[in-house]
Amino acid sequence: MFDMLARRALQSALVVLVMSVLAFAGIHLVGDPVYLLVPPDAPQAEIARATRQMGLDLPLHQQYGRFLWNAVHGDLGNSFIFNRPALALIFERMPATLELAVFALLLSAAIGIPFGMWSGMHPGSAVQKIAMGFSILGVSVPVFWLGLILIMLFSVSLGWLPSGGRGPTTSLFGIEVSFLGWDGLRFMLLPACTLALHNIALVMRITEASTREVAGQEYVRFARAKGVGPLRLVWRHIAPNVMIPVVTVLGLEFAHLIAFSLVTETIFAWPGMGKLIIDSLLQLDRPVVVAYLMVVLLLYVLINFVVDVLYLLLDPRLRARSA
């Protein structure tokens, strides 16, 4: 089992390295940030000085080498716009994004799994048809349009919920969170629901497919013949096997949520990492963009790795096979 994990760890490291090269090379081609610090009509000496100061006069591979060396030491450069460490900017905004992502994940698990399991165990029922219809809609509706509709409905027409921003936060272990007070929660509801819809639909479909497969198996029929009650049947016999693919999907989707939050944050003006990168991209704030890509990629790779380990732990057949 451990050699499989080691191989995955190595592959993950390779992915991170490759992405660092791509991110660095790609962002390097986007405009010349010298003109952010000096006006375009400045004397040549001034431009040269600024170029040297930002290290932009070195050959590309040397710039990359410097970047990598600094990165390993935790320094991903200073933002050109804010003149603060890019990494600090990102970590400042990470709790906001993570809050949204975690809330959306919990929503999708809480709604998707029960409906999916019910649909899987009662194929052809009204609930199943509605749930499957809803799930097709859920994966097809683009996130930004859904956000628009929700704003229209709940903010403009009904006036129940605010249409943007984060609102008052409370401090939890030194981190600012929104969900602890109703005031803060009000601001979080719409963006979290927008983000979660796609996930709810996906979890519903996977759970339904998985449940249908598990419920049709011999051992379930035997348990029912034995006289096992419906609740115990679901809890002890069906659910554990249904959960294996569902948990892995939830884990993978968590990473996807973090990446996709940038659209939701833009619509709702939620001050998270996603909004930061969109703004930085449009303003050519290179270090922040590169730092964001590296952080998100690292998160992605970490989550994938954890999901792989979880998968191995949950499914004893895999453990036996690799032993």
Partner: peptide, 15 residues
């Protein structure tokens, strides 16, 4: 495939 699609698309289009 292990890279998030929207980020790759974003970076590519920005470049």
């Amino acid at each position: 495939l292990s890279l998030p699609t929207i980020l790759v698309a974003l970076v590519l289009l920005a470049v």
